[in-house]
Amino acid sequence: MKKSTATLLVSAFLLLALVLVGYYNITRPRVLILHSYDPEFSWVKGLDASLRKSLKGLQRPLLTRWHYMGLRGAPGTQFQETAAASAKRAVASFEPKILVVFDDIAAELVTPELLNRPDIQIVYAGIDEDLAHHGFDRASNATGMLERIPVAALRDAVSHLGQGRPLRVACIGDARPVAEAEAAQVSAFDWRPHKLLPCEQVDNFPAWQEAVGRLGQQADILFVAGYRGLHRQPGSTEVVPPAEVGSWTEAHSQALTLASKITFVPDGGAIAITPSPQEHGQAAALLVGRLLKGEAPGSLPAETGKAFVVSVHQARLQRLGYQLPPVYEAAARAAGTLQ
C-alpha cells in the first residue's frame, strides 16, 4: 500500500512538473530570428553576438529560434525559392509573436504576406532599400532599423587620404539589387570638395576587370559598392569567390580601393568603413523588448544606423603611398580589424 502511494505521488509530481514545463514554454513569447545569409558570415556573426547579448539583457524569458536562408552571392531563382519556402515553413510551424528579419533578401522573400497581420509583429534591421520597397511604410505591425552606408565617414577618410587636395572617386559594383541600393546612396551624397564619377555596375568578372582597369586610370579612389555577386562569364551561373574578386581588384587597380563591406579587407581590399552589425543586433533586441512591453510597432518610427566599423590593411595603403591618421588605426585596432 505504501509503495503504491509513493508511486502515485511520484507520478503526480512528474505529471505536475510536465504540465508546468509545458505551460512555461507555451506562455513564453516566441521570437524567430530570420537571417538572409549563413551563420559563418562575419556580418551575421556580429549581428547574432550583439542580439543574443542584448536579448539576455531584457531579463525576460523568451522562446527563440534562429533560421538562416544562406543567400550570399548571387543565388539562382530556384535556390531563392527553396530558401524562401523553408523560411516560410519555419514561420508557420514556430508561430512567433515577433519575427526579427535581418537584411533585404529575407525581407523581400518572406515578409510581404506577413505585413499588417495582427498575430505577428516584425522587427527588421540591416535594410538597405527604402521602407516603401518592402512595404514597411504601410505596415502597422513592423518597425526596425535601416542600414545606410556611412558616406560622411567615407568622405572624411578620402579627405584625410588626399591631405587637403580634392580627389577623384570612382564607383563600381555588381548588379544585385543590394549593390544598386548602395550605389544610389553613394551617388546621392555630396562628396565636395572631391569629385564622384558616375557609379558603374556590371554582372560578370570580365566586365569588372575591364572597368577596374579603366576607372583606375580616371580616379584616385575606387569605391566598391558590391562584389559578391559577379558571375564568372556573361550568362554563367558560377559566382566568382569574393576573395578572388577583392584580391584581383586590389592588385590591379591603380586607384586605392575603398568599400563599405565588413568583409572587404579580409577579402583583399585596403580600407573598409562599414555599418556596425553590433548596432543593428542591439537595436533589434531593444525593439523586441519594447514590443513585449506592449508598445505598438506603428508608434516606433524606423531608425537609421549611425555607428560604423573601420578596417584597414596598412601594407595595401602604403603600396600606393597613402596613410591614414592614427585615429583610424586606433579604431581598427580596437575593433580587431587592423591588418
Rank of each mutant, 00 (worst) to 15 (best):
P112L: 01
E210K: 07
V101W: 08
R176P: 05
L115R: 05
L167Y: 06
P206G: 10
L109I: 09
S159K: 05
P61M: 05
Q80I: 15
L99F: 02
L324W: 01
G126P: 04
V101N: 10
S86R: 12
V19A: 14
P297Q: 05
W66G: 00
T27W: 00
F41Y: 15
A142V: 07
Q185V: 03
G73H: 07
G321Q: 09
G246N: 04
F189V: 12
H160W: 12
T274K: 01
R155Q: 15
T337A: 02
L161G: 08
A83D: 08
A49W: 02
H35D: 11
E329L: 14
A152P: 09
L287S: 00
T27H: 07
H231L: 04
P193S: 02
P177S: 03
D190A: 13
V91Q: 04
Q314P: 11
P39I: 06
L9H: 04
Q233C: 06
L58Y: 00
T7L: 15
R117D: 08
E81L: 15
A139S: 12
G135P: 13
E147Y: 04
K53N: 01
E40L: 14
P277R: 02
P234E: 10
K53C: 00
R155P: 11
L34Q: 06
I127Q: 00
I26M: 13
I98A: 03
V245A: 09
P325G: 11
Y23F: 13
R168V: 15
P177V: 07
Q121I: 04
Y37A: 04
V178D: 14
T249G: 12
V265I: 07
E40C: 05
A259L: 06
G336P: 11
W248K: 00
A219M: 00
D104C: 08
A315E: 13
S36K: 10
